[in-house]
């Protein structure tokens, strides 16, 4: 009986997340405060980038969550298509605006960081461009959800859009890479975790620990928000269902 799919029951989902939510939220708050305060005040300035480097503690985690949110939506969409659990579709719907906001944060912090570093707010660099395209995908996905009245139809259509969109998002990523080799440094965070980063291109260890804490904090924040928003979506859907039920009588 104790299958993971039990949590696809809306009531069970709400009951479980109600119990988890305070813990996850507290964890998110704690980790983010710890990571950000540590990062902002207790790390040395980078010898080349000065104190501007500290925006990394917001920029990198939000960029990471922007992509992970889409990945989560993709998984949730697949679950909906295969198993048709309503909670899954609603969770995907709930995650989209969060992912979109994370994308905006990543883009905005990137611009603020880019100004002193590259001398420009915006550069048509592959990574920046990819994020902008990702943002457009989020917008389309959210707009499609809100445009369709019937819940099941909307869930089906957005799921397929999410699948097709994922393929095209990846394709765009490679297309953009081909189109312009840019200024942005490569993803150096994971290498920093694996090795002791000592060359200047890598994010070195002094910066890495608070960065990882901050990333964990953003992850927890994302989970907490998804729980909360999915609950809201479930309740909104239940409200519509009850109204429809009333019409049947």
């Amino acid at each position: 009986m104790s299958s993971i799919w039990e949590y696809a029951n809306p009531k069970k989902f709400i009951a479980t997340t109600d119990r988890l939510l305070p813990w996850v939220s507290a964890l998110a708050l704690g980790l983010m405060v710890l990571g950000l305060v540590w990062g902002f005040f207790f790390t040395p300035d980078d010898f080349r980038q000065g104190s501007t480097v500290k925006i990394i503690y917001i920029h990198v985690p939000s960029a990471m969550m922007a992509i992970n949110a889409w990945a989560m939506m993709l998984v949730a969409s697949l679950v909906w298509i295969v198993r048709r659990h309503h909670v899954s579709a609603l969770a995907a719907r709930a995650a989209a605006p969060i992912g979109a906001v994370m994308t905006v944060i990543a883009l905005a912090t990137g611009a603020i960081w880019g100004q002193p570093m590259w001398g420009t707010w915006w550069e048509w660099d592959p990574r920046l461009t990819s994020f902008l395209i990702l943002f457009l995908f989020y917008l389309g996905y959210i707009a499609l959800w809100s445009a369709i009245e019937d819940d099941d139809t909307a869930a089906d259509l957005t799921s397929i859009l999410c699948l097709v969109g994922s393929v095209f998002a990846l394709l765009s990523r490679y297309a953009v890479n081909f189109w312009n080799q840019g200024l942005h440094q490569g993803a150096s965070v994971l290498r920093a975790g694996a090795l002791a980063g000592d060359t200047e291109e890598r994010v070195s260890n002094v910066f890495a620990t608070p960065l990882f804490i901050s990333m964990a904090g953003f992850l927890m924040l994302f989970i907490a928000l998804v729980f909360l928003r999915t609950q809201t979506e479930i309740r909104a859907r239940r409200m519509r269902a009850l109204l429809a039920r009333e019409r049947m009588q």
Binding site: I133, L136, F137, L139, G140, A143, L144, A147, I148, T153, L157, I160, L161, V164, G165, F168, A169, L171, S172, Y174, A175, V176
Partner: peptide, 22 residues
């Protein structure tokens, strides 16, 4: 995707244009 929608035109552009990027 947008066939059943009354004001689908604008949404259609929003959905299709990102797919046109590559």
């Amino acid at each position: 995707l947008t066939v059943g929608l009354k004001r689908g035109g604008l949404l259609l552009s929003l959905l299709v244009l990102p797919l046109y990027v590559p």
